[in-house]
Design a protein around this nucleic acid. Sequence first.
DNA 1: GTATCCAATTTTGTATACAATATTGGATAC
DNA 2: GTATCCAATATTGTATACAAAATTGGATAC
Lengths: 236, 236
Amino acid sequence: MSSTDSTKKSTTSKSDAVYRALKRAILDQALAAGTKLPEDSIGERLGVSRTIVRQALARLNGEGLVELRAHKGACVAQPSLQDGRDIFAVRQALEALVVDTLAGRLTPQQVKQLEAHVDAEDAARAANSSHSIQLAGEFHVLLAHLTDNDMLARYVTELVSRSSLILSLYGRPHSSDCAVSEHREIIHALVKGDKKTACSLMSEHISAITTRALLKTDSGKDFPDLLAAYAKAEGL
Amino acid sequence: MSSTDSTKKSTTSKSDAVYRALKRAILDQALAAGTKLPEDSIGERLGVSRTIVRQALARLNGEGLVELRAHKGACVAQPSLQDGRDIFAVRQALEALVVDTLAGRLTPQQVKQLEAHVDAEDAARAANSSHSIQLAGEFHVLLAHLTDNDMLARYVTELVSRSSLILSLYGRPHSSDCAVSEHREIIHALVKGDKKTACSLMSEHISAITTRALLKTDSGKDFPDLLAAYAKAEGL
DNA sequence: GTATCCAATTTTGTATACAATATTGGATAC
DNA sequence: GTATCCAATATTGTATACAAAATTGGATAC
């Protein structure tokens, strides 16, 4: 947005710092999906009062990374498989708008920025670095920001975050993240100004991510169902 | 989302009630864009503590209806003209996904629901009711919800809300809201299962809304610019 | 008369204290 | 041995109290 960045809740830093710390922890899977997030412990651990933690949790809830059940506290969100499908469907639509907006309009500087990013992706991939997956997501975020459409960038950012959770829940354990080559191809098409190719490349790319992220079959997504399976195995 | 509705911050009702009250007030333009929202006064007026008001304001900030500047308090958001363009561009993409998802898949019950809604729109329009404009927005929200894609519905809802603010800032005073006939045409195409027609109808429809909402020319959108104009007139 | 600086007031930012609700563990009844 | 109920505990929901920052108003100097 114009005046203030929005999406920035309020404070100079304290609540914001906790928010970022928790978000990072969740996206890095240091806090696995479903992990309870008691206000007290977190506050104690981070050296802030519950008030601050609470604000951060509320904000994360707004972004779908944390679930809040009344009188039962917060936990890292466990989006359903259906949520995953929904999220990727929306990504498909929004990232199509991203490439449509960007095709043929990238400045040389922006191209350099993008290439630097995919280089970093390659390096991290080679080093088998843990944040290889993080960088892959950030490519999409960077692209969205280059559109100069704040709304679009915000939504794409949020969707990419949620995608991480989905991947951690339903993706193959060491699922190969976005193929860096696909990112390079998209950049190439954008530079050439080939809208059509860029769009279909992105579309296929996201389809590929979706497939990798939602590998698990339809069954056993809900907790009750999961238990039912075990129950059946034990003849209960 | 699956488990808890998300977008529902936390509490059984109190903070939620204040949130809804403020949101309603903003969307009804009872609180004009830019209006200061001091935590104390609001809390006193609504009979809750600042804590609650603060939570509600933070949530509204997350949805772009309220701006929060550090140590300077909250006020009703004043999205820029550029924000308006951004928002409608995203709406174009997402509502295209809505009609694409819905075309040929509406149940008879859903069709009835939609027709009842546009009937209500017509009635409100005839009565020159103030919530005619509100109903017009809710048509888009209803459509989005029918997709059964929670993520999509959430984003469209948020975008429609923000559109109200945009309209209040930059639209023609008594700007005719969505033409109800256009809504009917869209429903018709959806029922027929004519994806192509439905998509282009929606696209044109949103373009029409965009035009009405962003009538004002490029000049004078920012406060400083506005002052500059007055200053110039006075030879300052 | 204008501009600058300082103090008083107001409003936000944060922590803590209290109230209400949910969970857990054990005890009792069958 | 199992199930049910109740009390103790822990955690969330809310209000209030205190600290910090910004705005406002007036007073003083030029």
